[in-house]
Simulated scan of single mutants.
Amino acid sequence: MSRQVKGVVSMRKGAPVELRTVVVPDPGPGEVTVDVKACGVCHTDFHYREGGINDDFPFLLGHEAAGVVAEVGPGVSNVAPGDYVVLNWRAVCGLCRACRRGRPWYCFDTANATQKMTLEDGTELSPALGIGAFLETTLVAAGQCTKVDPAAPPEVAGLLGCGVMAGLGAATNTGEVGRGDSVAVIGCGGVGGAAIAGARLAGAARIIAVDLDDRKLELATTLGATHTVNSGRTDAVTAIQELTGGFGADVVIDAVGRPETWKQAFYARDLAGTVVLVGVPTPEMTLEIPLLDVFGRGGKLKSSWYGDCLPERDFPMLIDLYLQGRLPLETFVSEKIALTDVEAAFEAMKRGDVLRSVVML
């Protein structure tokens, strides 16, 4: 029997979010319902609210979540009721050309729930990143559930569902940061901070945090940054070059996703170095750069999709690192809030007051 629960919905572009009653159907074949325990407020949710992803309003927001499996549909074998899970938006299919070539982190046919959650009047909702977790109970594809150690509290575990995994994976998976490398991270919010933590885990010798906000730079040092640059007072490219013997960093990660920051990343890397774009641009953004500079500097220009992660491999490992005291996930949790506070959390995020507000359910 379907459930009626409270959830945060964006009804139209730019309008404040609303707390609405959402109808969640019983799970069908390959589907699971999850009682959400915590969900981070990610910048991607704000992008949805502003129409920066697409215009399939109304959106059911929230996607960075941990919870407990409530019910499973026919054919589900990877999870069972009572399992503690982190939700992911890359439920790999195993059949597409990327999966068949042994690169499932690039899966081109990831799964979402087939059924739609709706408002009381039957209006279908578009769940953010196929999840929709600012909700007491949500419906997802079984492959979107990754079992992890329940010793990790949900406000910490859920962060792996998007921002932390995206940033950490941008360093370790996409950027392939290695022991002794120099790394610069431009933009030190939740994603950039996670990239710094990932670079430290990978053994980088020099980790340079770049931001306009001294508060974020201070937090970056607690996550592993060895040097900080306030790009509002100092030219970021020059500073990074000076901190790397005049050469530039081996890997530069753009966690902002603007043409200006991508160019900074491009010119702040060493010859044959790597640029990783993990910040999400908006549709109207364009980039112009001399093609000769691209050719002459060599190296790799890469985009990071979800940190190029494989949730069933990476989430349990990162939770284990957290429980061992080697990955300070608690640093990312700036405040714990209620469902009714999501709009205020967006404002705090825009002001740069938080790394992550986390909705507790």
Rank of each mutant, 00 (worst) to 15 (best):
G163H: 06
A348T: 13
L292F: 13
E136P: 00
V237D: 12
F46D: 11
A197G: 09
H47R: 15
L292M: 11
C96I: 12
G82F: 05
L243Q: 15
G187H: 01
V229T: 13
A225T: 00
A128K: 07
Q241A: 11
A170Y: 02
I319H: 03
A113H: 12
A128C: 07
V148M: 00
A255K: 06
L361A: 04
S304R: 06
T33C: 04
S303N: 14
A70W: 02
E347I: 13
A202P: 06
G169K: 02
G143A: 07
C39R: 00
C96A: 08
D149Y: 06
R97N: 11
V22Y: 04
A236N: 05
N112C: 08
V191L: 04
E312W: 14
G257S: 12
V191C: 06
F332L: 02
D314C: 04
Q264A: 12
T286D: 15
G143S: 09
G158K: 09
P29K: 01
G7C: 10
W105R: 10
A236E: 06
K13W: 02
P311T: 07
L129K: 01
V278K: 10
G163K: 01
S357P: 06
G257H: 08
D83Y: 00
P316Y: 03
R12K: 12
L61R: 02
E18I: 03
D293M: 05
S10G: 13
R326S: 14
P153Y: 09
D314W: 05
A225Q: 03
V24R: 01
S10Q: 12
E335R: 13
D181I: 10
V280Q: 14
A170P: 06
V86F: 09
G175F: 12
P311I: 01
K6I: 08
V237H: 06
G73R: 09
I131M: 08
A272C: 14
R3C: 03
T286G: 15
V358S: 00
D353G: 00
R269K: 11
D45C: 11
R356G: 05
A338M: 09
S182D: 13
D341A: 11
E136A: 06
V36N: 01
T221V: 08
L135W: 00
A141C: 12
L318K: 02
N173I: 15
V358M: 01
T340Q: 13
A70S: 09
Q324W: 05
F108W: 03
V280Y: 11
V140K: 05
C162D: 15
W105M: 02
G14P: 09
D121H: 07
L159G: 03
V164E: 10
F59Y: 11
C162H: 10
W262H: 05
W262I: 14
H227F: 08
C107P: 03
T238Q: 13
M1F: 08
C96M: 06
L355K: 00
T340K: 08
L271T: 08
A113Y: 14
Q4W: 04
T118P: 01
G7E: 07
A91W: 00
F315S: 00
K116H: 15
T138P: 08
A265S: 15
L271M: 14
L329E: 13
